[in-house]
């Protein structure tokens, strides 16, 4: 019996597909692009000696069909709901998939490792909060503000952060979320300038706009389109344009609201 047959006998196709989908969804949820996800899925299928792997993925759905040595064919799908970029999970999952492509480990072990990656993320609220504060402060100075403006931008990030955890997280609609966050940011920036913390409204707001701007998604999506993946490209372009529009709408709303109150 050669190794190919051995591998086909040990690993059942249902379980292999489950592993493949789990890995792919972790990658897709945490900021990998679609071409890379599809590539990884095919590699894992080949490592576990599945025949004719056919994969298709867009940002919210993964489909895979493959057959085993006996000709049994199976299709499984996975729906992706909300995605947040987490570079640590992305990197660890990628390392794991490289490892199992080199030598196929037992499926229980792989599943255990995947769960471990998911649960042992470094992502703590404190870390993210500090990161956002550093970014907002330095970018408001980067665009020409002074120390007072940076301080105001940092305070707004704090307000946002607590609002984000306690108020906005339950409503997990991305567009609605961006809109309400921009309204909140605009109102607090104008308020802070009016009570004397911070000098330039524009610099403070630009520092905070950098936290919301969907630049990476826009660049990725247009690249997807140029590489021939029109479905994913269109979805992402639409979502990032809508995000930009909702930032604009939120600021407009804030200006209209606070302009009536203060000027």
């Amino acid at each position: 019996m050669d190794t190919n047959e051995k591998i086909a006998e040990i690993f059942k196709i249902e379980d292999v597909l489950k592993i493949v989908l789990e890995t792919a969804s972790l990658l897709l949820k945490n900021g990998a692009d679609v071409r890379r996800v599809e590539d990884t899925m095919i590699r894992i299928c080949n490592a576990y000696k599945l025949r004719n792997p056919e994969v298709f993925s867009i940002t919210s759905l993964i489909i895979i069909t493959a057959s085993d040595m006996n000709g049994k064919t199976l299709t499984q799908t996975k729906r992706i709901y909300n995605s947040t970029t987490d570079l640590t999970i992305l990197e660890r999952t990628n390392a794991l998939s490289r490892e199992i492509c080199k030598n196929p480990e037992s499926l229980d072990y792989v599943m255990k490792r995947l769960l471990e990656i998911k649960s042992k993320s470094l992502k703590t609220n404190r870390r993210i909060c500090i990161g956002n504060m550093i970014a907002a402060g330095s970018f408001s100075m980067f665009f020409g503000g002074n120390f007072k403006d940076a301080f105001a931008a940092v305070i707004i990030t704090l307000i946002l952060f607590f609002g984000n955890i306690y108020v906005l997280k339950p409503a997990s609609n991305r567009i609605l979320y961006t809109f309400s966050v921009s309204v909140l940011m605009g109102i607090s920036a104008i308020f802070l300038v009016n009570i004397g913390i911070g000098v330039h409204i524009d610099k403070i707001m630009i520092g905070d706009i950098m936290l919301l701007i969907p630049g990476m998604a826009l660049i990725n999506s247009i690249t997807d389109m140029f590489c021939g993946d029109f479905v994913t490209g269109t979805i992402k372009v639409t979502s990032s344009l809508l995000t930009a529009l909702s930032i604009a709408g939120g600021y407009l709303f804030a200006f209209a609201f606070m302009g009536g109150l203060f000027k």
Binding site: G31, T85, D86, L87, T88, I89, E91, S121, L122, K123, R127, I128, I130, G131, N132, M133, I134, A135, A136, G137, S138, F139, M141, F142, M210, L211
Partner: peptide
């Protein structure tokens, strides 16, 4: 500005939850 861009990018790397070495 270059120094501020450096600090800002570090902030974003933290917020996107990159590994410590990255």
């Amino acid at each position: 500005q270059v120094i501020l861009a450096f600090i800002g990018s570090i902030g974003f790397a933290l917020a996107l939850n990159a590994k410590k070495s990255r």
